[in-house]
Amino acid sequence: MLDRVLNAYTEAIYDTDRDRAFQVVHDALAEGVSPEDIVFEIVSPSLEMMVKAISESDTANLAQHFLASQIGADITEEMMARFRQAPRMAGSVVIGTSQGDFHGLGKRIVAGCLKAAVIEVIDLGTNVPPERFVDEAVSRDAQVIAVSSMMVHTARSESGCLGVRRILRERRLEDRIKVVVGGAPYRFDPELYRIVQADAWAANGIAAGEIIARLIEEVQS
């Protein structure tokens, strides 16, 4: 039963059919599937299936990422409101675009994928100075800071990820908070994340979810 729902849901996302994806979930609920199972047996595994498909065939496109993240986040939110016990979040992430960068779509896709993985997301918006990333991460007890940039100069700037790293070092927070980066320049240069002194990067929102979940575990252990 759950397998059938999982396949139908994943197919709808692949076909970029938002209405059908919601229909599949609501039909499953009506047939007695629990909200917990929808999140942990359908939405999360579906994202994992997509990670696998993408890394094997490299064919998923922006429209699919966008919908997978949006629908995944919306359904997870809807289901969590119906959980029998308040859900335990896997961890929290502070996310934003680097200072001088106003391109919010990449960040939004990543945030959606994180929400679908039951990770708490604190979205600081676009054009975020490095101090603010760190201050928010400390006050909200986040394990990861995620910095998105669409342009080369905002990715490499002293007030981007490099600035976040400098402040974390000065305030001796590097064991407690990990930094992850992404956006177009990193896709053109897979080594760039080292140059900006990040702990990791990801090429798309779905892979970002996996990597960030790993970093959260690292910090928590």
Binding site: F66, L67, G104, L105, R108
Partner: peptide
């Protein structure tokens, strides 16, 4: 209108 709004309009 921004990338997000354009994608949303295109898709749904």
């Amino acid at each position: 209108m921004g990338m997000e709004n354009w994608l949303a309009l295109l898709l749904s």
